[in-house]
Amino acid sequence: MFSTASTTPEKLLQMLSALLLFAAVLGVVLFFASRVRGKRSDNLVGYLYLLPVVLLLAVGLVYPGLRTIYESFFDAQGNAFIGVDNYKTILTDGDQLTVLGNTIVWVLIVPVVATAVGLIYAILVDKSRFESFAKALIFLPMAISMVAAGVIWKFMYEYRVDQPNVKQIGLINQILVWFGGKPVQLLITDTGKLNTLLLIVVFIWIQAGFAMTILSAAIKAIPDEIVEAARLDGVSPWSMFVKITLPSVRTTIVVVLTTLAIGTLKVFDVVRTMTGGNFKTSVIANEFYSQLIRADNQGLAAALAVVLFILVIPIIVYNIRQVRQEA
């Protein structure tokens, strides 16, 4: 069961037995949980429900996370303690500052724009005849792997020289040419962070589907009476949106923004596949990968990961306050 399966039936069998094993584990947890009685039962049942999760997370995320924090105070090979030198590098080195700046641009733009597009689109297509088809179109990019997305956007951004016999194969440059302009080497132009913004477009393109789907569900759950009442009051469409729709889906928007912000902080494959982090487009998660894998600098990589932790703290704090307010 734990050995290599090489034919399809073997693989299937292995998968089924794994699922059975998992079901058995769950069964045991639930069995014990159902036996618990008495005053302390809530405590015990709570811990039992969380037991598998805590075990997996402790081994899979907490332990590596703590190790990373520890390693961030050591040198490239993890041999010598060097204090906060790695953090100094991140905060003083010119390249690293660009990386930090880019990450902040990403995390400010992506969640907001993706959520806005998702929300507007969800409202626009709501109840329309082609709703499910229309939604599938925006959802489609989510179904595409980054490797594939890289190819897709190559055919948007690609540059070909402006010469008589050479044709553009990137759509954007073709449009520029059609309108009498000259093709631009889009991905290596960092004036006004153009290339970073172009990469951000790709990520928004992928993530808007997530925002749209979740927000659409929330919109559909707004109780009818509220809407009816507002309508009887003769509320204008705009104030309907501002006074009814927005407040009703506010918590959902927070959830979506949070999820997207965290996802954006971790973004790495978009940058990796499209520019490799060159031309001043690198972000922390990509730089982390470069330092860990390419440059073999464990210490700096670890420190970069810790900076990611730190950047997410405001998001966590905000969410905790949300939870408190609701409670």
């Binding site: 969800a122 409202i123 626009l124 709501d126 109840k127 919109i219 559909k220 759950a221 707004i222 109780p223 009818d224 509220i226 809407v227 507002a230 309508r231 469409p237 309907m240 949106f241 009814i244 729709t245 009703s248």
Partner: peptide, 11 residues
Amino acid sequence: PVQLSAAAVAK
């Protein structure tokens, strides 16, 4: 059960 959502009305 929601017949017409707020968004639909707004739209």
